[in-house]
């Protein structure tokens, strides 16, 4: 087991696939984990690309903020040694695609800058998603060893996963169909791809994570595991936990009761997630100070493996 190995700075890097889709509901710390894992991967010498999906609100990107930037560009830019980042955008994808089809970039530019075409591409159903998909595909073709994609929200993940199948119904042949099929090969190959579901040790987020897992299974997206974030400190053995529970700590304001309740929820979350995906549950601890935050990547541990 892992005890005999030399200290592993971030064991999760071992389990990463080439393409990693980080997904989960809002507020679970998905972006923090995506940034941390990408950094840990780069620190182990892997050429890593960190990607996020464009948010058309025009607000600063929280992911870019981790690296002291307001936004990432539409082409990969180097952030740190071995680590680049990109913002996947619909218009870049649409333009790239037209370019590959029309072969003349000035012509593409003319078409893309036409206001009517812009409205068409923005307004017509699924065209934005197709743009995202194609822009992402262009990155997958490049020679990065690890790609970490921070997906904006639960619904998006399932939408993106479902898109190739849906579109192929309408566009069975031609240049778009070829790209969709190529994308499918990337997304549905479990040797290359894994979706990681980020969640919190509370009843409702765990239920939502399990629902998401089932939805992804239905779309045949390979799963990497659950990332249980903000896990409270739990110093107790199973036995000690039982002893503590035997004391009747009824008052909701009692401080030990709250600590134990948090631990109880953690245990329950670990159990439920393990039942869904045995040996594929990772625990990311709640951090308390900047020291711990700086060292966060190496603190993510697989459930059942010792630190």
């Amino acid at each position: 087991m892992s005890e005999n190995l030399s200290f592993d700075p971030a064991p999760i890097v071992r389990d990463l696939r080439r393409i990693n889709l980080i997904t989960g509901k809002g507020g679970v710390g998905r972006t923090t984990l995506a940034a941390t894992i990408a950094r840990a991967s780069a620190a182990q010498g892997k050429r890593t690309l960190l990607a996020e999906i464009e948010d058309d609100s025009g607000w600063e990107s929280p992911l870019a903020r981790f690296f002291g930037k307001k936004h990432f560009a539409g082409e990969p830019e180097a952030l740190e040694k071995n680590l680049s980042a990109i913002c996947i955008s619909a218009s870049s994808g649409q333009e790239d695609f037209l370019n590959s089809f029309l072969k003349i970039s000035t012509l593409t530019h003319m078409v893309m800058s036409n206001q009517g075409i812009r409205w068409f591409l923005d307004g017509a159903p699924a065209f934005r998603e197709m743009g995202f998909f194609y822009h992402l595909l262009m990155q997958l073709r490049k020679d990065y060893e690890v790609i970490i994609l921070d997906l904006p929200a639960t619904g998006h993940m399932v939408g993106l996963a479902r898109l190739p199948n849906l579109l192929l119904k309408m566009i069975p042949f031609g240049p778009i169909a070829d790209r969709l099929k190529e994308g499918q090969q990337f997304f549905y190959d479990k040797k290359q791809t894994a979706a990681w579901i980020v969640t919190l040790p509370q009843t409702l987020p765990v239920s939502e994570a399990i629902e998401l897992k089932h939805a992804l299974e239905e779309e045949q997206i390979p799963l990497g595991g659950f990332l249980l974030n903000r896990a409270p400190f739990n110093p107790f053995t199973e036995e000690e936990g039982q002893i503590l529970e035997s004391f009747s700590l009824k008052s909701k304001t009692h401080r030990l009761m709250i600590d134990l309740e948090r631990i109880r929820r953690l245990r329950e979350a670990e159990k439920r997630l393990s039942e869904e995906m045995k040996d594929h549950v990772w625990i990311a601890p709640e951090t308390f100070n900047p020291m711990e935050e700086a060292d966060f990547g190496s603190r993510i541990r697989k459930l059942g493996e010792n630190a």
Binding site: P125, R128, L166
Partner: peptide, 13 residues
Amino acid sequence: TVLYANMSNMIYG
């Protein structure tokens, strides 16, 4: 249409 059945949530806005 396939669009209406499956993708109405993908229409911008």
